[in-house]
Structure formats: C-alpha cells, structure tokens
Amino acid sequence: MRHADEPPGPPAEVWVEGAYELGEGARWVDGRLVFTDILTGRLLHVPDGTRTAREIVRLDVPLGAVAPVHGRPGHWIAAAGTGIAHLAPDGRLDWLDRPEDDSPVPTRMNDGACDPHGRFWAGSMAYDATPGAGSLHRTDPDGTVHRVLEGLTIVNGPAFTADGTLLYVADSAAGVVHRCPLDVDGNPLGLSEFTRLPAGGSPDGMTVDTDDCLWVAVWGMGEVHRYGPDGTRLATIRLPVRQPTSVCLPPEGGRLLITTARYGLTGPFGAAGAVLTAPVDAAAPAAEAYRPG
C-alpha cells in the first residue's frame, strides 16, 4: 500500500521480453545489465544498445548471482549450487567452498553481491523454505568463505552503503529488511530491523543509490520501494507483475531496471518473467568487483 504522503510512482514497462522462471541478481557491469535465471542456471546479459537478453553461460546447477572478478575480463565469482565458485568464460566452475553441502535440508545459494572492499556476500535458502535454514556467507579476497549470519530463512539482498560500513540484508520469508553495521574485516556488529513490509509482501533484491537510499523489489506486492537511510519510505513504483525479484540503477541515472519471475504462476503470465524499466531520478555505482588477494 502506498503511503498517503508519497507522490504517485512512475509507470513501469517491459524493457526486455522474456519468460524467465526466476530472474534475479540484476547488476550493471561494463555498461550492460547482467542477471541470472536461477533455477535454469543461466547467466544472461543485455548488450549495450539492445533490448534483447543473450545467454553468457548455462550451468547444470542453480545460479543465484555473480560479480565480476577484478582484472579478469569474462570471469565471475558466483553463488551457485551449494556454494561459491569462480566461473570461467567457458562455464567451468572452480569451487572455493560448498558450505551448504552439509545442510540438514536440501539448500541452494541465492542472491549475492560484492561490497566496496571487494568481498563477495551471498545468501542461501532451503528449496522448501524451511524456517531458519538460510545463511549469509562472505567470501574474502583470499578465497575463504565464512558463514556470518545464520538462522534466517530466504536470504536476499545483500546491499551496501558506499563506504562499505553498513549491510542491508533481507529475510524474504519474514518480510523484513535488516541493517547490519560491519567492522573493517566485514564482521557483523549487530542486526536490527530496518523495515518490515505489509502482509503479502516479501523484500527481495536490493540496491543502494548515490543518495544512500535503499531500493527494494517487493515480491508478492508487485512494487519497488525506495527508503531513506532512516527507514522512511520515500517512493513506491507499481509494476504490471506481482513478482519483482531484483533492481538495478545504471550509473548514468534516469531509469530503474527490474527483473521478474514466472515461478509458481499459472497462465496467462502477462509481463511476468520479463525485465521491466521505469523512469526514476536516481543512479547507483556499477557492480563492485571481487578482488582476489
């Protein structure tokens, strides 16, 4: 529900046609949108000047999200399957760790992103959304993977302020976005509730803009919310689909890009599964790269 004092949000329209089952992980990399279709294991991009998504690689495990690797064009660090891996241009996975192999229930990696210090953060979730089975993992430049938060259910985000001192992470099943200060080594210094969504809304992918405001895709409500640093909702963008999954603000500003999902729906699908766009007066830095030591 839109707050009474919010101005009407801008209209959203289809930017890239597509029947993506579970689009996710929208990031701006090298002047193009990069995103995943999680359950099909596909990494896709929209080449500059086009409105058509093309496949970069296809894996035989779910692919939650990627980040570019600094100094290695075409190489990615990936939240895939049950862990974290280097992803080569030919689709080869070199596993750093698979921390969810030993989970008591079948579990996969979900959304992920790098912080401004070049560390890769990625969440996990049980396939059946078992309560408390999700965790947040941090991959350091030396390639070690650390479980930094646990006891969550469906871990989404993460997103960071420009100085890397504050983490936002969503527990989608609980309808809550948490904020978490970090020390210089990326260790959490506490967890507090930043915002709680109305019943029926689940926070999904997020990004922080150049004004330190947080943008959140709201699964189930067909909206994107923009929040000020104090948690005040500043804007609501209504979408022609109910399941937005992630958001991306290109550095040049002027537009918001939104991935969506057909997962769990029965036809007619309409625009569900497409990449949407809406005009906005906001921008964000390009995706941070993983910086191996």
Rank of each mutant, 00 (worst) to 15 (best):
D163V: 03
A126V: 08
Y20N: 14
G9T: 00
M1V: 05
P188Y: 06
G81K: 07
P229V: 01
H178Y: 15
L189M: 04
Q243M: 13
V247I: 07
M109G: 04
G273N: 00
T277P: 08
A162F: 06
I38M: 15
P251F: 05
E24D: 10
N156R: 10
L59T: 06
V169T: 01
D111S: 05
A80K: 15
V57N: 12
P10G: 15
P188T: 03
G81D: 14
D48I: 08
H86D: 14
R179A: 10
G175S: 12
A126I: 11
G186F: 08
R108G: 07
T36K: 09
D111T: 01
A79R: 13
H75G: 07
L43R: 13
H146P: 06
P131E: 10
V66W: 11
D5E: 11
E288K: 12
D142Y: 14
V57G: 02
A80D: 11
R226S: 00
P73H: 15
Y127Q: 13
A287W: 02
D94S: 15
L182E: 05
L197K: 05
R226A: 04
T236L: 11
G205T: 00
G25C: 12
L276H: 01
R54D: 07
Y20M: 13
G157L: 04
L197M: 08
L197T: 06
G9R: 00
T165L: 04
V145F: 10
D209M: 08
A26F: 07
D5A: 14
V66E: 09
R54F: 01
P229F: 06
D183V: 05
N187C: 05
M221I: 04
V148F: 07
C180N: 00
R27G: 09
I38G: 07
G64T: 03
Y227P: 07
E223L: 12
H146D: 04
E223F: 02
S246I: 07
R92H: 15
G264T: 02
I258T: 05
P68L: 13
A287R: 04
F160E: 07
G41P: 13
D30L: 08
V46A: 04
G132P: 13
R147E: 09
P47S: 13
A286Q: 09
A80L: 14
L197C: 08
R108M: 09
V208T: 10
P181R: 09
P116G: 03
D281R: 15
A283W: 08
P89E: 00
Y290D: 05
T210F: 02
A162L: 11
G222N: 08
